[in-house]
Amino acid sequence: MRTLILKTASNYMLPLLLVFSVFILLRGHYLPGGGFVGGLIASIAFVLHAFANGLETTKELIRIHPGFLMPTGLGLAFVSGIGPLFTDKPFMTGLWFPELPPPLSVLGNIGTALFFDIGVYFVVLGVTLTIIFSISEST
Results as ranks from 00 to 15, higher is better:
132 I>E: 11
49 H>N: 14
23 F>Q: 09
30 Y>Q: 15
77 A>H: 03
50 A>H: 02
96 W>N: 12
64 I>N: 14
114 L>W: 00
78 F>M: 14
79 V>K: 02
28 G>D: 02
27 R>G: 11
57 T>R: 12
14 L>T: 06
61 L>V: 13
69 L>D: 10
13 M>A: 15
85 L>T: 05
48 L>A: 08
94 G>K: 15
72 T>A: 15
45 A>T: 10
22 V>H: 02
28 G>Y: 00
46 F>I: 06
14 L>E: 06
31 L>Q: 14
130 T>C: 09
109 N>V: 12
36 F>Y: 11
130 T>W: 12
139 T>E: 15
117 D>G: 00
73 G>Y: 00
25 L>M: 01
112 T>N: 01
106 V>T: 14
114 L>H: 03
119 G>I: 02
24 I>P: 03
20 F>P: 07
78 F>G: 09
105 S>V: 05
39 G>Y: 01
62 I>G: 07
34 G>I: 01
85 L>S: 06
57 T>I: 12
94 G>L: 12
112 T>I: 03
28 G>I: 00
68 F>C: 12
52 A>C: 03
107 L>D: 05
88 D>E: 13
2 R>I: 10
96 W>F: 13
114 L>P: 09
55 L>R: 07
88 D>N: 15
12 Y>W: 14
97 F>E: 12
83 G>N: 11
109 N>T: 15
63 R>C: 07
118 I>S: 03
25 L>K: 02
